[in-house]
Design a protein around this nucleic acid. Sequence first.
RNA 1: GCCGGGGUGGCCGAGCAGCUAGGCGGCGGCCUGCAGAGCCGCUCUACUCGGGUGCAAAUCCCGACCCCGGCUCCA
Length: 480
Amino acid sequence: MGIKVYNTLTRRLENFEPFEDNFVKMYVCGPTVQDVAHLGHARTYIAFDAIIRFLEYRGYRVFYVRNITDVGHIREESGRDRILEGADREKLEPMELVDKYMLMFFEDMDALKLRRPNIQPRATMHILDMIEMTKSLIEKGYAYEVDGNVYFDVSKFPDYGKLSGIKYEELIKHRIEPDPRKRNPADFALWKKAEKGYLLKWPSIWGEGFPGWHIECSVMSMKYLGPQIDIHGGGQELILPHHENEIAQSEAFTGKKPFVKYWLHTGYLTIAGEKMSKSLGNFVTIREVLKKYDADAIRFFVLSSHYRSNIDYNEEAIKRAADAIDKIKSTLRELYYEKEDARAGHDEMASNVCTEMKRRFIEAMEMDFNTPEALSVLHELIRKANAYLSSKTTTIAGIDAYYNTILELCNSIGLLQGFKPETEINNLTASGILQILLNIREELRKRGMYDLSDRIRESLKEVGIIIEDTKEGQRVRLKR
RNA sequence: GCCGGGGUGGCCGAGCAGCUAGGCGGCGGCCUGCAGAGCCGCUCUACUCGGGUGCAAAUCCCGACCCCGGCUCCA
C-alpha cells in the first residue's frame, strides 16, 4: 500500500516517494544549546525517532541530520542574544556554555534511546559556508548589504509564503518596529553586524558580525544532504519564519525547487493547556522526568498522541503510559515462562492472529505515522496474547508467534529496545540468596505456613523484587 | 487584526461519510490460601451549538461560541 505523509507545504496527505528509491534524506531542526533540554524537545525528537525507525523497519535507508544551534540569535524586542544571556547568567564563556549544554543534550537523547543522527553539525563550524552562501545570494540579486548587515530581499522571491500561507500584505505590516535600513519590513537578515563589545562574532567581507538564524539550516542541510532533500522536520512554531526563510534562501541559491519534498511538523507539548517553553517558564526537563520514568514510558506517552497534535503533559498521563509499558512487558514475560510448558506443533490460529495484527499495525503507521492507532492495535494484540495464555492450549509455535510479533512491532517504533525477559530473570535467579529464599518460601507454602511466606514476599517487594504466585510456581520480576 | 490547528463517552485519545478504535478509571463475574497478574461482561452508539446537503454526517457545507498556537526567540 505504501506510506502516506501529511505535507505542510501542500496541506494534504501525499504518497511518500523519496527522490532516490529507498534512500531517505532527512533533516530535523535541532535545539539551541543554551540551557537544559525540556520535555517539549523530547516530544519532537521522539516523534521523529519513531518515524525514522518505522521507515527503516519498512526497508528504507534513512540518512538523518540534526543540527546543533550554537550561535546566539538576537531577540528583536530585547536586542539580546540567548547564548550570551546564558553565558552571563552562568558566568561562563559563550562557547563554554554551548559545550556544556550540547553534551547534556546528547546525554538526554541517548537516555531517551533515540537513534543517533548520522551527522550532528554545529552552526559555528559552518560560518564560512554561511558567508559564502550569503555572498552568492547578493551576487544573484536576492540579497543586499547595508552598513555591515545583509538582508534577503523577499520581494525577489515570489514563492515566499508558500509554506506558511502568509500573504504579502500581512508580511509587511510587522508588529514590532522593523530595522529602518531594510528595504522592506519583510526582509530578513542573512548576516548581522556585531555591535561593539559583542562577543560572538566572525570576520567577513562586510566587517565583523554573525549569521542570521535561518541560514545555518539551509547551509548544513545542503552541505550534508545536497540541494534537495526528502524530509525536513521540526516543531510547528518553526514554520514561520524559520522554514519559510529556509525555502527562500535555499531555492534562490540553488535555483532548484523544491528544496524539501515533504515538510513535517510536530504539535506542541503543552502543560495545563499551554505550550511548554523556556520563555513561559512552565517547563519540565528531560532529566527530571527520567528520574521517575524510563525511556519507554516517556516514548509511549509521546506516541499515544499523533505527532501533529498537541499533547498535554501531566503526572497521570505519563503514569498511564508507564503502566501500559509494564503491561506489555508482563505479557512478554508470561509468554517466556509459558514456553517451557507449551506443546510442540503448529498453531495456525495464533499465527493468523499475529499476521493480522501486524498488518493492521503497519497499516496504521503507514497512514501518516498514526501511532495512537498503531498502539491500539498493539493493545489488542496484547489482550489476545493474554487470552491465548489463559486458554492453556499453547504451543511453542504459538508462543513464539505472539512473542516475536509483539517485540517486533514495539521495536519498529523504538519501544522496548533490547528487552529480554530471560536476562532480566536470569540476573535475578542468578542470585544464590534469592534462590534459597524462593525455595524456602515454596516449602512454607506447601505446609500452609502463609504468614511466613507472605512475609518473605512483602520483604522482597520492599527491596524491589516482586514475586507473583501462579499455578506453575513463583515468578520473579523487578519493580519499575 | 491576519493565518493555522482544535472542540469525541468520567478522563486520555484514534476515526474524518455507512462497518466494536484503543487505553485509563468504575462496577460485576471467573481464577487464586491471600496478594499480584490475567480472562469475560457491563459502564459505551459519545462526538460544542444552530442550520444545510446526502438513502446515510462525529465525519461534507454555512453560521455561531469556546480553546490552543504562529505573525518576536522557541522543538
